[in-house]
Amino acid sequence: MGCFLRRLQLLSTCMAFSLGASVGTWRGAIGNWSMFIWCFCFAVTLVILVVELCELQDHFPFWDNFLITYNCYSALLCFSASIVYPTSYLQFLPDSSYRGHAIAATAFSCIASVAYAMEVAGTRTQAGRTTGHMATVPGLLKALQTVVACVIFLFISSPYVYQQQPALVWCVAVYSVCFLLSSVVILLNLGKCDNRLPIPFPRFLVGQTLLSVLLYTSAVVLWPLYQFHEKLGGQPQRPRNVSCSDRLTYLVCIWDQRLAVTILTAINLLIYVTDLVISARLDFVRGQEHGHSQP
């Protein structure tokens, strides 16, 4: 089953990349993001398949942990490309063979995300196999936080989106700091270094998540306030100029980018809140078990 899924991942990412290249997807930032995801997943999956066929995985001590982490990220990244690509690029294509190729690329991207997710689910249910932290709910939430942050960075790649107000620069700093903190947690688990911290790792996890929740709460208030409130220099209505017309420009309208970041900020805040609740509960349960184990 794993070998079948690996080949399905290769086929679907290769087809998505090839079909996207046939319509010139790389000419815009959104297209670049999708093309990078499909190409990266295809290349790494090919390397993994070669390693497994040659039975070289025993030479890598963290192979299982790396594999589950990669599959989690590939599922989330392909899923993000399956949403961002059609909503920001496909809808502007005229009815032609190009549009058909773009629709097929989106479909293969969806197939790839399902194939990676099925492998993650299979790893979690496989008896006698160590799944690793990334296969747990807290690990999946950490991966989801970083993927959503990457999509936010994609939409704020243009400085015109945030440079006009210091409050918006603060929001960009919030996205960056929280992304780095979540990445550190993932790297600590991937390298099995979570027991080397001066404080217990579950307590560190709760503190990191709580800080991220507070920072994202400020961003979820300040970003839409300074982007869409007219008295604070925002633009409440979508403009009707050439840059936001309904035609293929390979560039996403600035107002649409601001709206997308607003929605993604709220989504990531909900993910962090869910992570905080789960992490605090697990820390409390471990504390209770430790207290009962003491004489």
Rank of each mutant, 00 (worst) to 15 (best):
L144A: 13
N65S: 15
V137S: 09
G122V: 03
W26V: 09
Y162R: 05
V172S: 07
V148I: 15
D283Y: 11
N195E: 12
Q294E: 10
I156V: 14
P166E: 02
Y70W: 15
C171F: 02
V206L: 05
G233Q: 00
I111W: 07
V50K: 03
A280T: 14
A173G: 05
M35E: 12
I271E: 01
A112C: 08
C110V: 13
G191T: 06
L77W: 12
A127H: 10
L8T: 08
L197A: 12
I152N: 09
A104N: 07
T249V: 00
C193N: 06
G24R: 04
F79G: 11
R7M: 13
N71T: 10
Y70A: 01
A104R: 05
S88T: 09
A219I: 02
T123K: 13
C150T: 11
A112P: 05
T217H: 01
N65P: 00
Y250G: 02
T130Y: 12
P166N: 01
Q164I: 00
F204M: 07
T262A: 05
C41F: 09
S18L: 13
Q257C: 15
H133L: 06
L276A: 07
Y70I: 01
V242I: 11
M15L: 15
G207W: 04
P159L: 03
L76W: 03
L248G: 03
K142R: 14
V151C: 08
G291D: 13
F62Y: 10
M1G: 05
S183C: 09
F4A: 15
R196I: 05
I271H: 00
L190Y: 12
V273I: 15
R281V: 08
W63K: 02
L215A: 11
Q208T: 14
L140R: 09
S182Q: 03
F179C: 09
G207V: 08
V23I: 13
S158P: 01
C253A: 06
A167Q: 12
E289I: 02
G31W: 03
S113R: 07
S74G: 14
F108W: 06
Y85M: 08
L248R: 06
V23S: 00
Q164P: 00
R129K: 15
S22Y: 04
P166C: 02
C244S: 12
L232P: 00
T130E: 15
M134G: 00
A107Y: 07
S88Y: 04
Q164H: 12
L5C: 13
V84N: 03
C193S: 12
V161E: 11
A21R: 10
G2E: 13
S176Q: 10
P236H: 06
T146D: 04
H101V: 01
H101S: 14
S176M: 08
F40H: 09
R7V: 10
A43I: 14
P61M: 02
S109Q: 07
V44W: 04
S182H: 05
A115M: 02
T130I: 09
L93D: 00
I271R: 03
L232W: 11
I278N: 05
M134I: 08
C54T: 10
R124D: 05
V242C: 02
F42C: 08
Q208M: 12
Y226K: 00
L251G: 01
